[in-house]
Write a protein that binds this DNA or RNA. Structure first.
Lengths: 218, 218
DNA sequence: GTCTATAGCCAGATAGAC
DNA sequence: GTCTATCTGGCTATAGAC
C-alpha cells in the first residue's frame, strides 16, 4: 500500500530541499528577518511555487521545526539502543548532539523568544506532539538520573528539561566560535562541562564526612 | 557650567519616558517585532515626535541598550563598594541582578541572536564602550576567582564572561515563570545554583580527603 | 505545478502647518 | 517640538497564463 509514484517522489524531494533551505535560513536570521523571497531564491524556484507546497510563511517554518524535532527523535532512539549507558550520559549525549547541530548552522532558533512564530507553533498539533515526545524521552532519563543520585534531585525535573532545551540555542556557542580560538569540539566539551556540572548532584564537601548525596538547592 | 534650563529638563524627562517604553517593548517582543507606532502609542506622543529625538528605530533601540548597560554599571559599582565579598560571590550577585531585571520584564534581549539590530549596535561607539566597561569589571572578578581557586581555572575567561551575559537572557527563567510553580526568588536561586556550580572549580571527590578549601558553589 | 506580474498591506520615515 | 497626513519600499500572498 505504501507505493508512491515517481512523480510523488520528486515532489517529496523538492519539499525536502525547501525545508533544508528554510532550516538554514531560520538558523541564520530567525523567523522575523527571513523572507519568503529569500527562501524561494535559495531553493531556486518561484515564490508562488513555494505557496503551492506550504500555505503560509508560518506553516513553512513549522514544517522546518517539525523536521528538526524528527531528527532529534531519531537521535534519541539511536541512543536508547545503548541500554548500558547511564541516564546522565544519555542526557549529555543528547545535548552534545543539539550543540553539534547548532554549530553546524542547522538549528532553527527555538521560539522561547517572542517571535511572531510562537503563536502559530502553539496551535500546531503535529509540532506540539513531537515536542512532547522529545520531552517525554528526556524526562525518563531525567527522572532516572535524579533517582540514581547523578542529577541534583533538588531541582525540578522541568528545570533540567528546559535547561537542556536551552542549550540547543545557547548564544555562548556562537560567541566562542566567533572568537576563533577553539574548535567546535573543544567548545562543545567545555560547555557540556559547565552545563552538566551545574545539573549534577552536589559532591559532598571534602572536609565534612557523611554528606548525603542528593540534596541542596540554595 | 552644568546648568540646564527647565526646558531641557522637560526634554530629558520625555526622552527617559521614551526609553522606558522602548526598554519594556524590547524585552517583551524583541527588536524585529516591536514597531515604532507601538512605542509612540505607549509613550503617548506622535510618531513624528519620536523621530525628533531619535533618528531611526535602530538608534532608539541602541539608546535603550545603552541605558540598561548604564544601570548594570551602577549595580556593579555598588557591589564594588563591598570589598570584603569574594569574587565568586560578586559574580553571583551581578548575575542575580540581571535575572531580577529579566523577570521584571525590563531586560531587552541582548542581540547575541541574529536581529537586524546587531549590525547597528556593532557600529555604535557608545554602546561598545559601555559593553567593554561591563566586561572589564566582570573580567577582574573572573580572573581573581580563577586565581583563588573558586572558579574553574580550566575554562577560558571569555567563556565565563559569555556564560554570565547569556544568563541575562536565559529563556529558562521565562519558561519556569510561565509554569507558575515557583516564585521569582526561587527560580533565580535555583538557576544561580546550576549556573555557578557549573562554573565552579571541580570539587574534590568526597572519598579523597584533603580537598583544598575554596571550591564549590552550592 | 511552475512561472511572471501584481494586489494589498503595513511599517519606517518625512512634509509641512502650527 | 508637536501634531496630522502622506510618501515609499518591502513583504506576504494571490491571479492567471502556460
Amino acid at each position: 500500500m505504501g507505493r508512491v509514484s515517481f512523480r510523488e517522489q520528486v515532489l517529496r524531494a523538492r519539499e525536502e530541499a525547501i525545508l533544508v533551505s528554510v532550516n538554514r535560513l531560520l538558523a541564520e536570521k530567525g523567523f522575523d528577518v527571513m523572507t519568503v523571497d529569500e527562501v524561494a531564491a535559495d531553493v531556486g524556484i518561484a515564490k508562488a511555487s513555494l505557496y503551492k507546497h506550504f500555505a503560509s510563511k508560518e506553516e513553512l517554518a513549522a514544517a522546518a521545526m517539525i523536521r528538526v524535532l524528527d531528527r532529534a527523535l531519531a537521535q534519541l532512539e539511536t541512543q536508547q539502543a545503548d541500554t548500558r549507558a547511564a541516564p546522565f550520559d544519555q542526557l549529555k549525549a543528547a545535548t552534545r548532539w543539539t550543540m553539534q547541530v547548532q554549530l553546524a548552522g542547522e538549528m532553527p532558533s527555538l521560539p522561547a523568544q517572542n517571535s511572531a512564530l510562537r503563536g502559530a507553533l502553539m496551535g500546531n498539533k503535529v509540532y506540539l506532539d513531537r515536542l512532547m515526545q522529545v520531552s517525554d524521552l528526556l524526562g525518563v532519563w531525567i527522572t532516572a538520573g535524579q533517582k540514581s543520585g547523578s542529577l541534583n534531585a533538588a531541582l525540578p525535573p522541568e528545570l533540567v528539561l528546559y535547561t537542556i532545551f536551552a542549550r540547543a540555542c545557547d548564544p555562548v556557542l556562537g560567541l566562542l566560535k566567533a572568537g576563533g580560538n577553539y574548535s567546535d569540539e573543544q567548545i562543545i566539551e567545555m560547555l557540556l562541562v559547565t552545563c552538566f556540572q551545574g545539573l549534577a548532584a552536589v559532591a559532598a564537601p571534602a572536609k565534612t564526612p557523611r554528606g548525603h548525596a542528593a540534596a541542596q538547592a540554595a
